[in-house]
């Protein structure tokens, strides 16, 4: 019995490790350098540095749904579902699709939109000019 127990324990731990490992493959990075050549082709502007961890902290009240969403077919609305955070480009492409904006506009509406709103409300905020988000070098 104890032999089986140990064996099961071993298998259990291995499975857990495997899960954790695949888990980390989907987890967010601390910082992103956004330059999606696969979507945009030749980039017109320098890459954007996006500190993910700093945003999680600064937006802890609003939560992950301030940026991440999936489209709920039932209620025909964008909703946030925990664990369903994907790259924006999985749904937003080079061209807009119906009411869903193209990737560039999805980013700008989300990023610049929030930063401008927070500036207006005199809260802590991020950059709102092209060159501060797309800094050369």
């Amino acid at each position: 019995m104890s032999f089986f127990n140990r064996k099961f324990k071993f298998i259990g731990w291995s499975l857990l490790c495997l899960l954790l490992q695949t888990g980390t493959a989907f987890a967010q990075e601390e910082n992103y350098v956004l330059a999606h050549q696969d979507v945009f082709g030749k980039m017109q502007r320098p890459a954007v540095h996006f500190p993910h961890a700093a945003h999680e902290e600064a937006l802890s009240d609003e939560g992950c749904g301030a940026c991440h969403h999936v489209f709920d077919e039932q209620v025909k609305k964008l909703v946030y579902t925990e664990g369903e955070e994907q790259e924006c480009k999985t749904c937003h492409g080079l061209k807009p699709a119906g009411t869903s904006p193209a990737l560039r506009e999805a980013y700008h509406k989300s990023c610049t939109g929030c930063h401008r709103l927070k500036k207006k409300n005199i809260e802590k905020s991020g950059p709102t000019t092209c060159g501060e988000c797309h800094p050369k070098k």
Binding site: Q44, E105, H108, K109, R116
Partner: peptide
């Protein structure tokens, strides 16, 4: 100009 269009969109 592209940059102006990004601003109009904003």
């Amino acid at each position: 100009l592209m940059s102006h269009i990004v601003l109009w969109f904003e």
